[in-house]
Design a protein around this nucleic acid. Structure first.
Lengths: 201, 201
DNA sequence: CACAATAGAGAACGAGCGTTCTCAAAGCAA
DNA sequence: TTGCTTTGAGAACGCTCGTTCTCTATTGTG
């Protein structure tokens, strides 16, 4: 099997274990068992556990970004594109393996003792916030809407994780709808001739 | 020194260390050093590290509850009482020791391997959500407002923790204001005679 | 002063960790 | 087949952890 495939198998197993039980609780021996790659093999592919952790976080960031953008792309109106974020969260929360945001978890566990983990979490969150800001800008809404929507998404994730239920996504979506309506012209600006018919809230 | 005072000193030191660096990263020896209580003394006062962790979480819950209710009590109108939550957060985020919600952190670190820690976090969050729900009910607002405000507070905490800045409190406060206005009659119900003058949004 | 009880310092213990090393088996070129 | 390289299984190493134990010094009490 090619190195790249073995790497992928290791990172998949590591992600599953680290996300499900915490990083410090999963030893290299368990990763060997779960991935089917010997200890020597693991240390041939990665210089250390810390390196594996960082690659797992990178992979998770890419998967999150892909998942959200794909869900957003399916929506048609600017308003629905913003709300699609919470639809994505709603689906994710229903997954039985859901245990909160992996970056929040990693940051909580290691952020204060591992600068690289802390940086990875910061970059992930900043990337998401930038993405939301771009969606908000494209929608022509007040830029102040962007951090509000990001905070809602953040709060929904931790609330759902700790409560063990998915309702938080619906609550966040409803709140987002209200905030969007307050920050966005009800009708696209190129249709402003009709505004007198559509300004009912 | 009385047992209760020694207990308090131990729990204070444990809280500072656990919150600042993570629970698993702080050993009993370090707690002995920070508290000035010998290992034998620690195990005389507490049966195990797990018991200390739980008491630390209980203490933290009480402090959070006291702090929030005190801040809320200072506000006069129902609307300001709801917004006071975010003022409390804003102050907290400026503390240099701020490192996110201790319960989210503990849950992320140990929730999946320690049922008692998971339960403590769930109870803490449920308690806060109930409190917000009571404030919302007292304000005569749509009950759906309560989980929205809780999610905003939750999201502000993790956002501020990872970003390392406190702006999230302001963003959450602004969002809360919009959501409150959308869910609450603009004028107290006992003044409804005037409603025809104040229904402008 | 004598003596029992206590408490502190720190060694000890058993377990688990990340990482490296050993050694035997397997594969492969010639 | 022979010799060389690579591989996997798992032992070994050095460390840290939570917890207990030992031993010494101290204290209070008669």
């Amino acid at each position: 099997m090619a190195d790249e495939q073995v790497r992928a198998r290791v990172l998949e197993a590591a992600d599953r274990l680290y996300y499900g039980r915490g990083i410090q609780s999963v030893g290299m021996d368990e990763l060997r068992l779960a991935s089917g790659v010997s200890l020597k093999g693991l240390y041939g592919l990665f210089p250390s556990k810390a390196a594996i952790v960082l690659e797992v976080l990178d992979r998770r960031h890419a998967q999150w970004t892909d998942g959200v953008t794909e869900r957003v792309a399916r929506a048609t109106t600017p308003r629905d594109r913003l709300l699609a974020i919470y639809d994505y969260l709603a689906d994710w929360f229903l997954d039985d393996t859901f245990r909160g945001c992996g970056f929040i978890n990693a940051f909580a566990e290691l952020g204060s003792i591992s600068p690289t983990v802390a940086q990875s979490a910061r970059e992930h969150k900043a990337g998401f916030q930038d993405y939301v800001a771009r969606l908000v800008a494209t929608a022509g809404a007040d830029p102040a809407l962007a951090p509000q929507l990001s905070i809602l998404a953040e709060g929904a994730q931790t609330t759902a994780a700790i409560a063990g239920t998915g309702e938080a996504a619906d609550h966040a979506r409803r709140a987002a709808g209200i905030l969007i309506d307050a920050a966005m012209p009800a009708v696209p600006s190129w249709n402003r001739l009709d505004e007198r018919h559509s300004n009912a809230r």
